[in-house]
Amino acid sequence: MDLSAGTLEIVVCAVLISLSVAGNLVLIYCTRRCIGEHLRISFVLIFNLAFDHIVNNLVVNVLKIVYASGVGLDSASCKVLMFTTIFTTSLAIWFTLYIALLYCLKLCRVVHPPVEAASTNHRKCHLVLVFALWVAGFAVCSPVLPYTERAGNLTGGNETYQQHSILNYSECKTEYRNEQLEFLYGKIFLVAIDLLPLTILLLVGFRIVHLLWEHRKATYGGIWIGDDATETEVLRACKLVLALIFLITSFWTSYFVLMHCLKHFNMYYFAPPVLTVLHSGYSAVSPYLLMFINYKIKVKVGSFCCEKEKNTVSPTAVSPSVEVSPSVEVSPYA
């Protein structure tokens, strides 16, 4: 690899790791405190998405730095690189879709209030589903492990790059040793597990836009009575979800086009850092949007960032310019 290209990739990876780890650690810390106060499925989903982002950066991008610095990767490192890339990318899409569906349902209840109160006894089902997503991600991505080796360890056959990986490292290649398996799993299945949720995610985004338009129309038409704090939070969260949908679909689509439609793009020296940004850009930007998606998380983040600047006000402190007459009774409803 050219020295300037390797240096550029190291810088890009270091910046992305710093942004992602810092943002996601703050998000995990604040979300964990919110979960301790009151368990809500939105907190659980945000916590898992942030954890997935940290795993992606601390494994994939660190290995990229190792490779770009000139240190060779052994077979174990290649297996970890390929598996973690596919695993974390798919989970990020799945959890983002889960969050979008959750807030789309909340917004639907705001715009079209149900006749009966919605049941809130589904927390165990949500927790089981979150655990099932982790298990399913491991199950669908684990077949990559036995077929990934260093290029020098592959023997014969038609050597192919892992189509779903973020970079076609020359030392890490995947050989399925079966053209049918390579086509069905390597080119169809691994793309479908991302493309299908992304398609659903876009449809959910259009539904959110339609619901927001209905809410605005009702408000300005004089029909809507007004928004309470919960409705305001849902509206703000849905707008942030739209930003998340735009980010993850644009990053994934751009990467897919560059890797699979432009055959010679990865031959340019600037290809590795560009593809790295497209792969890890969502994990670096999304935590700073997720910090404002929930009011409690927003408050925790604000208190965490301004903890040293907080001034404790004594309850006995009374302004000398304010006099309270003992003959004046204060209404309990004031």
Rank of each mutant, 00 (worst) to 15 (best):
F183Y: 02
G186L: 01
V209G: 10
L184E: 03
I193E: 10
V209I: 15
L211F: 02
V204D: 07
V209W: 12
F206T: 15
I188K: 10
L212I: 13
I208N: 10
L190R: 05
E182D: 14
E175T: 10
L184V: 05
N178D: 09
D194M: 15
V209S: 14
I193L: 08
W213M: 13
K187Y: 05
Q180C: 05
E175W: 07
G186S: 04
E214G: 06
Y176W: 15
I193G: 03
E179L: 03
R207T: 04
L212D: 09
E175L: 12
V209T: 14
K187A: 07
I188G: 04
E175Y: 09
V204M: 09
W213S: 10
L196P: 00
H210T: 14
A192Q: 08
R177D: 12
L196G: 04
W213E: 10
V191Q: 14
G205T: 05
L212W: 03
F206Y: 15
Q180L: 10
I188S: 06
P197C: 01
L196K: 04
G205R: 00
I188E: 05
W213Y: 15
K187V: 03
E182G: 09
L203D: 09
T174Y: 00
T174E: 02
L203E: 12
L202P: 00
I188N: 06
V204Q: 13
L203C: 15
L196A: 12
E179M: 08
Q180V: 10
E179G: 07
K187E: 05
F189A: 11
G186Q: 02
R177G: 11
H215E: 11
I193Y: 05
L198P: 05
I193V: 15
L201P: 03
L203V: 15
L181F: 02
V209H: 12
